[in-house]
């Protein structure tokens, strides 16, 4: 499993980076989204892969951190997901406005010569 998840993170990151370096605004937005999947997964993985043990304390009230997944990276990633959506929206609107103003969807606001 570890190898599978690592490869998936690598592929998500690589695809995202490739798009990030492209000249069209839509490519950059999609690239950022892919990159944020990779980064969120990576940070989440700091707590290692734990299957079937969500960090929810049972009714007995016994809280043994070894018995469930690490809650700290999960809490970090949760807000990152929502903020990621907000910034994607902001970026999209800025790029749309730039397209309206400059007439091109090139990231620099003009076609490269």
């Amino acid at each position: 499993m570890e190898a599978l998840v690592s490869v998936a993170i690598g592929i998500l990151c690589g695809s995202g980076l490739w798009l990030l370096l492209r000249p069209r605004t839509f490519q950059v937005i999609v690239g950022l989204a892919l990159l944020s999947y990779a980064v969120n997964l990576f940070i989440f993985c700091m707590g290692r892969l734990v299957i079937g043990r969500a960090p929810i304390i049972g009714t007995d009230g016994v809280a043994d951190p070894a018995a469930f997944a690490d809650p700290v990276p999960q809490a970090l990633v949760l807000t990152a997901i929502v903020i990621g959506f907000a910034t994607t929206a902001l970026l999209l609107v800025v790029l749309l406005a730039a397209r309206g103003l400059t007439g091109t969807d090139h990231v620099d606001g003009r076609e490269s010569g």
Partner: peptide
């Protein structure tokens, strides 16, 4: 760009693997 993307993606995969294990 392709080379860079593959290298960085590969590096992150290797790093994740090293961390996860």
């Amino acid at each position: 760009d392709l080379v860079i993307a593959i290298v960085v993606g590969g590096a992150l995969a290797a790093l994740s693997y090293a961390m996860l294990t």
